[in-house]
Computed example of a mutant assay.
Amino acid sequence: MSTENKGVSIVSEKTCQAVVGRPEAFTAVENVFAAMAKNSAYNFPVVREAIGHADALYGFKSGFDRDGMVLGVKAGGYWPGNAQQGITNHQSTVILFDPDTGKIKSLVGGNYLTAVRTAASSAVSIAHLARKDSKVLGMVGAGHQSTFQLRAAVEQRDFEKVVAWNFHPDMLPNLEKVCVELGLPFEAVSREELGAQADVIITITSAFESLMQKDWIKPGTHIACMGTDTKGKQEVDADLLAAATVFTDEVAQSISLGEAQHAIESGLIQISDITPIGEVINGTHQGRTSEDEITLFDGTGVGLQDLAVASAAADLAEAQGKANFIDL
């Protein structure tokens, strides 16, 4: 639906939740990863700064997808004290522009979409890289994003069990409740036991040290590292990346602020060892080559993911008559 005569569409957080589910997010993220690998979509340099107030980090992620004709910017960041006020620590808004004219098209709430697009990213990696016979899903982390990750992951394989570990065990019921709802057995385990059991592992933490060691991971495992998005953060042993076939959303971010930063810095892997997952989606890389191969997806989170799901939200909201419009 054209917004030319209606002005700028406003798509609220509530509306985003109503119109964008896991299937819509999965398709949007998969398509934009494919476009990135073809160099028809690209991210602009990220701006991320500590603002010197409320311990907050604030920044901008932006880019242009020529295939999807999506241009925009996500503005927001992390306010660690928000949880005490009953609101999410991550706050963001997406602004979409008309690529032909530069005119603003839409203002879209970004909080829910950030969670659902991050979950879609790991789900895409599982769909394309995990063994087809994967039966046990391992979750490292039990915070706000973990339940989104869990729900998206279990739709990709016929998992029969979920095992989980979290630094604060009192948060594990967040995951257990979802498993009860889905009818999946759930078990809280040590990290070593998680590695021994899991066929697919998702790490979704804010750790600055290795939580999973190479020797704990069994052959054939797929690991989606989703928490490392800042210089210094780390979720898995750098030796694990050396032992795995490594894929990512964007190589430049993977080596600078993603999980691969530590393996690169220590010389354990080279940039040429990291493959954009879009190449697997496009069929230009075969992906997993054996049942014993360990595959690892370094999900750093790129602006184009946010723009893709925000564009889907705006289109769906407008088509369903759920968007509001204003003149600017």
Rank of each mutant, 00 (worst) to 15 (best):
M1F: 05
T3G: 15
N5P: 02
S9W: 07
S9H: 02
V11L: 04
T15F: 09
C16Y: 11
C16H: 03
A18H: 02
V19P: 11
G21V: 02
P23E: 05
P23D: 10
A25D: 00
A28D: 00
N31V: 10
A37C: 13
Y42T: 10
F44W: 08
A50H: 08
Y58K: 04
S62V: 07
R66A: 15
L71G: 05
V73P: 02
G76M: 12
Y78H: 09
N82Y: 01
N82P: 10
Q91C: 04
T93P: 14
P99K: 08
T101M: 01
A115E: 13
S121T: 11
V124M: 08
I126W: 00
R131H: 14
R131W: 11
D133P: 13
M139V: 03
S146K: 00
R151I: 06
A152R: 00
Q156C: 12
A164Y: 08
F167P: 05
L172C: 09
P173G: 03
L175M: 04
K177A: 12
K177M: 08
K177S: 15
P185H: 06
V189Q: 14
D199N: 15
I202P: 07
L211H: 06
M212P: 09
W216R: 15
G220V: 05
Q234D: 11
A238E: 12
T245Y: 08
T248N: 15
V251W: 08
Q253I: 01
I255E: 12
L257A: 11
E259D: 09
A260D: 02
H262D: 12
A263D: 05
E265S: 14
Q270Y: 11
T275R: 05
I277Y: 00
E279I: 07
V280F: 05
Q286V: 14
V309D: 04
L316A: 13
A319M: 09
A319W: 00
Q320M: 07
F325W: 14
